[in-house]
């Protein structure tokens, strides 16, 4: 029996084929899960908060918990002035969280396993940092690259490193999310594939399949953790980068 192809799960399939000129803008399985994530995330928050109770129930409490969690993350990183970006950070967190968790359901497509998606979100964040940083601080924004108290001799070197680290931010931000999700899903598929293949070999195969089965269960738990953690990492890094735009002087 052939081992299931671990790459197959990342294939994009057209659901409604659309073309704008020569550009393919079809509604795909990826788009479907983006829309589902938005509907599900917003639906949860809207329904949970619809009764506006003073003493919250279970659902309202969990919605408030998510809200306060993201709000505290942003406030502790970027200060109270950073709270103007709360809708964006909350949207990013919720979107990535929902999309990642949807990806954990078997046969569901994982939107963040495609670099274009994570890159687009990263460029949005870094673009906002640059635009808002320049709008708020003018040329003072570039003091971000000039740390205080560095001797003049090595200053050009330090500035070079600072610029390099700033430029690498959108790359690391997008690759981190993309690679974590991609690698996790491939690993999961491979180990789950072992179970199926070994199970088809008879009783000795069943015994041998126990180990990959345990690993698959453990990896599933780990991947759920990674799905939540990566959403949090993206949100907190966004907060830290926005803090640089608000307070460029170190």
């Amino acid at each position: 029996m052939e081992l299931p192809d671990p790459i197959h799960q990342f294939e994009i399939k057209e659901i409604i084929s659309l073309n704008l000129g020569s550009t393919n803008i079809s509604f795909t399985n990826s788009a479907l899960f983006m829309v589902l994530a938005v509907l599900f995330g917003c639906g949860f928050l809207l329904l949970a908060s619809s009764r506006r109770k003073l003493v919250p129930g279970r659902w309202q409490s969990s919605a408030e918990l998510v809200y306060e969690f993201v709000a505290n993350t942003l406030r502790s990183s970027a200060g109270s002035e950073g709270m103007r970006f709360f809708p964006l950070v909350f949207s990013l967190f919720l979107f990535i969280l929902m999309v990642n968790l949807f990806g954990m359901v078997p046969y569901f497509f994982t939107v963040t396993s495609h670099l274009i998606v994570t890159a687009a979100l990263s460029v949005l964040v870094i673009g906002l940092v640059i635009v808002y940083g320049l709008y708020r601080n003018g040329l003072g924004f570039f003091s971000l690259f000039v740390p205080h108290g560095v001797p003049g001799v090595i200053l050009p070197f330090v500035v070079f490193i600072e610029v390099l680290s700033f430029v690498s931010r959108p790359i690391s931000l997008s690759i981190r999310l993309f690679a974590n999700i991609l690698a996790g899903h491939i690993t999961l598929k491979v180990f789950a594939g072992f179970v199926v293949v070994l199970g088809s070999l008879g009783w000795y195969g069943w015994i041998a399949a126990v180990l990959p089965l345990i690993l698959t269960v453990a990896l599933t738990a780990l991947e759920v953790l990674v799905a939540v953690l990566q959403a949090y990492v993206f949100a907190i890094l966004t907060s830290l980068y926005l803090n640089d735009a608000i307070h460029p002087g170190h």
Binding site: T23, N24, S26, T28, M34, A37, I116, A120
Partner: peptide, 12 residues
């Protein structure tokens, strides 16, 4: 599907 993904990401 880069354009399609980008477009639907933007919309959603």
């Amino acid at each position: 599907y880069f354009a399609s993904q980008f477009l639907w990401l933007a919309i959603s």
